[in-house]
Nucleic acid binder design. Structure first.
Lengths: 218, 218
DNA sequence: TCAAAAGTGTTCCGTATACACCCATGC
DNA sequence: GCATGGGTGTATACGGAACACTTTTGA
């Protein structure tokens, strides 16, 4: 009668570290695709909501329990032979994280996106879709701050944009844009000199979600 | 063991007709939600790709075989009690269609989105997500033309935008924007007077997909 | 004193907006 | 002729790009 199919959740967790956009992956230690990099994932339970499953995979499989990761649904992948063992429909989630230490216990590591050319299953396709979504979202939302620690300078936020978009931005115009956009940043009142030069104001993420007008990549 | 779950495809097919944004729905004739409007949907087969399942549902359940409908994946809905009979994970697809006759054979009809307040399951939530996606896509893509017949005037395209966005647009500025954007429209050389007044040039959809810079709603 | 980075001011330019105006048809 | 809608031209405003310049620290 009605076909029943295993449904999984796969996570594309991205961060910016060592001047590179990187993804949280693990190296498969058994067939199929033994030795290849794979996204963290898991099957959803019978009584479990999709966002709850994504949060559980983030905590248990990706080894980031309680981490401040922005999770949003990316896309669903379901062509029949994407897993050679059995048909699996996979709901991919995109996660944007600050530069957290990867869990060695969960055998996860951060790998630069540019170097992840050989991945298991269709995970490269999924990861690239996640990267493109992240690049697009930085244009019209304030989500770039999700890549930053709780307190950050405007220059640190700018370097996030530069690395995700892969092009330099004018520091002065960028500064005006993000500080003038209502609700993007909240000043803490403290300053830091960790980037050298004149002390920079520290900020937190503000309540704004959307950017009007957007900040265009090109 | 790995839980196996029925996976369905639900279609939010939208069109513009009678000056209203409308969705393709049918009235349920049996419980649950008997008498309520529902989206067309169906379970995916074991060896079937997701886009193929969406195309099959469009042809067989929605009664629009071979119609020029732009289909794209919308979002996946999977909280456990969305169907009271059994758990179903549903991959929703958004379809943008010209004003085609609804299939009476398939018991489908076009209903204005504004009047679809009481729908079966979580179909109102899904439909509203589709409407919001359509509104957003008109800003930065040339997909508005998917609501038009094969040949259309600039004014007809403008009325699509006005109805989807729910606000009037300046006819002269709109005309300049869409005709100056490379690859948005292709002139056919023919004209029509079906809108009254001076004859208007007929156009086809051009090869462009993205709009740079976008056309903002506000 | 100098280098480095933060932050401000200013000029220039492209695009959106608002609207005056002309064009080509039906009645 | 006149109403109706199609299409062009033009002045203004706003936001982004480019860049000169000042500020504030560490070395």
């Amino acid at each position: 009668m009605i076909p029943r199919i295993p449904v999984s959740v796969d996570l594309v967790v991205l961060t910016v570290r060592s001047q590179q956009l990187s993804a949280l992956v693990w190296r498969r230690d058994r067939p199929p695709y033994e030795g290849r990099w794979a996204l963290s994932g898991g099957f959803i339970k019978l009584e479990e909501d999709l966002p709850a499953a994504a949060a559980r995979v983030l905590a248990e499989r990706a080894g980031l329990p309680g981490a401040p990761v922005h999770l949003e649904q990316l896309q669903t992948y379901g062509y029949p032979d994407r897993d050679p063992r059995q048909r699996v429909v996979s709901v991919a989630y995109l996660g944007l994280a600050p530069d957290l230490p990867a869990s060695t216990e969960a055998h996860m590591s951060w790998q630069p996106v540019a170097e992840l050319t050989e991945m298991a299953f269709d995970h490269r396709r999924i990861m690239l879709d996640g990267v493109e979504r992240a690049r697009a979202k930085l244009e019209y939302t304030s989500l770039g701050a999700a890549f930053c620690p709780p307190e950050f300078t405007v220059a640190e936020l700018r370097r996030v944009y530069e690395i995700v978009w892969g092009r330099p931005l004018d520091p002065r115009n960028f500064h005006r844009k993000v500080t003038k956009t209502e609700g993007f940043l909240v000043q803490t009142g403290r300053t830091t000199t960790r980037d050298g030069g004149r002390p920079a104001m520290l900020h937190r993420r503000g309540p704004a979600v959307l950017l009007h007008p957007p900040m265009l990549r090109i």
